[in-house]
Structures are given as C-alpha cells and as structure tokens.
C-alpha cells in the first residue's frame, strides 16, 4: 500500500457515533426515580423519543487535516473530542460516515492504518508497575521494533524529554503525572507515526511540563514531518500550537478556521478577541465547566 503525496493525512466525512445510555437498575425505574428521556448526560444530544435512550457523541462531523499540519479540536468536556479521537484510532466503529487516513479507510484497511498512527490519551495508559523502559519496549515491539533498537531509541527520546536516567527503570506509579505524560508521548513517538493523535496531552500538567510537551509537538511536525491532530480545552495552547482549529460542541463542528480566522468571526469590543470569546459567541457556553462528566455508555 503506497501513500501518495496528494492525499490528506486525514479525511473525515459525515461521521456519527451514538451510544446507548446505561439504564438505571430496575428497582430505581420501578420507584420512578428515573425520568425517561430527560436531562441527558452531556457529550451528546438526548433522543427521548427512541426506544433505547441514546446520546449522539459525534454528530455528522466532516473535516480534512492536511499533511504536516497541526490541527486542533477545541471543545469543552463531553463535547465529543475523545470519542472522535477514538474513532480515528480504530477503537470505535462509526455508526455512519467514513474516515480515511492517508487515503486508507480505517475499517477496510484497519491494520495498515494502525501502522501509520499512534495516540496519546488524556490518561497516561501504562502498566503502572512497569518502568518507562519496560513500557516503551513493550510498545515498540508491538510495532515491530527489535529490543535493542527500541532500547536505544527509548533512552534517546526519554533524555530529550528531560527525564533523569535514574527514572528509566523506576515503576511508572512512582512518577508524577507530568512525567508519565512525557513517557506517553515518547512511547507514541518511538513508533514513528506519520499521524499522531493527541487527546488533551497537556491536561493536568504544570506550566513548565506543558511548555515542554508543546515544544516537542512542534518538533515532531517540523523535524519529523508528522501530522498532528490535538484535542484541547486550553485556548492558549490551541492558539499558539495549531495551524487550524475546529470548535466542537455537542458532537458537532460549529466553526473551523485558523486561529486568526476564528477570531475574525466575532466583532471586538475594544480588545483583541480570544478563542474563549469565539467559543462563547458561537455556542453560548463556557469552555471549561468542572461539573461536566463523560457520558456513561452501555
């Protein structure tokens, strides 16, 4: 399977993903504590008239990410960002629509697509008792790298990300969240993906770690020719890092442009508009609401 220069890194067409909402236990339903069809969990639009309650996490989304681009998806918790990334990562099958990675359909050419991509999720998913080196060796072998090559590259990348050599063999559970997230990025980078999916990679990091991760993301694109799709609800990060940004709200893309183009969408009241202003203008919501939770799926 060859990849031509002309195709986009990512082509998403009319993708929709719905989940069944977990029904409350029968005793609660009998006691009438549950109001069918009411107050939907955020992250989707309630469909009270359907027999099974569903939330639409991703609703008819279409987008194109060009080769070598850093493309941001900006949205509050529960807006469908993570579901969209899971769809692109082959971890979910869309209910409707198509996704192509460098021209390869993610369903029909699943294995070929998997070789081209990697993902860093908001929660650094590791075997916590294992060390960074052991976790990285495991990941590298899954992608077909020999132990020696993986070890050499792991040490090089971990050093580049500022980890002390003594931490390479310590259990991951003894590391700070920032360090764990750096190891997650090292693991993804180790497999040399040409499309890297970063799902809120800097959430919960201190400003210095956040800055280091952002530098590394830029380096991945500039030096290693990777295309990057990053989800975030950090406006500053989106503004400084992304070439283009899509704003996602209730599973739908409500705007897509360069950071400057998005800001130009709204009139300024004597000050330079921020992406937060843009988001509020377009959706009538604040970007971060601490009370929001991920939708429960059945």
């Amino acid at each position: 399977m060859t990849i031509t220069e002309q195709v986009d890194a990512l082509t998403v067409r009319s993708v929709t993903k719905r989940f069944n909402v977990q029904r409350p236990p029968i005793w609660e339903r009998l006691r009438g504590h549950h109001r069918a069809g009411a107050d939907d969990v955020n992250g989707g639009v309630a469909r009270p008239d359907t027999e099974k309650r569903q939330v639409t996490a991703v609703d008819n989304v279409s987008l194109d990410v060009h080769r070598g681009e850093i493309y941001g998806i900006l949205g509050p918790n529960g807006s469908g960002k993570s579901t969209l990334v899971r769809l692109l990562s082959t971890l979910l099958i869309p209910d409707a629509g198509t996704v192509q990675v460098f021209g390869l359909d993610i369903i029909r050419h699943e294995m070929a697509v998997k070789r081209l991509i990697n993902r860093v999720s908001v929660d650094a998913a590791f075997f916590k008792k294992l060390s960074p080196l052991e976790n990285l060796l495991y990941g590298a072998r899954l992608y077909g790298m020999s132990g020696r090559e993986a070890r050499e590259k792991s040490v090089e990348i971990l050093g580049r990300l500022g980890l002390e050599p003594r931490t390479y063999t310590q259990p991951m559970e003894e590391m700070s969240r920032g360090m764990q997230q750096k190891v997650a990025i090292a693991r993804a980078f180790l497999t040399q993906p040409i499309l890297l999916l970063l799902d809120e990679p800097t959430t919960g990091l201190d400003p210095r770690s956040k800055h280091e991760v952002q530098d590394f993301v830029n380096e991945l694109r500039d030096v290693h020719d990777a295309t990057i799709l990053i989800t975030t609800h950090d406006m500053g990060e989106a503004d400084s890092l992304c070439d283009r940004i899509a704003i996602l709200d209730e599973g739908r893309i409500v705007a897509e442009d360069t950071p400057t183009g998005l800001k130009a969408l709204i009139s300024s009241n004597g000050h330079e508009p921020t992406l937060e202003d843009v988001f509020m203008e377009l959706t009538g919501k604040k970007l971060v609401d601490p009370n929001e939770v991920e939708p429960a799926v059945a």
Partner: peptide, 14 residues
Amino acid sequence: WEGTIEYTLMAPVH
C-alpha cells in the same frame, strides 16, 4: 485494570 486496553488493541497486531 491497568488502563492499557485501548493502547494494546490499537496497535497493528493480529
């Protein structure tokens, strides 16, 4: 339990 299920299942492994 470890939270690695998505990572392992998205790897290009039969």
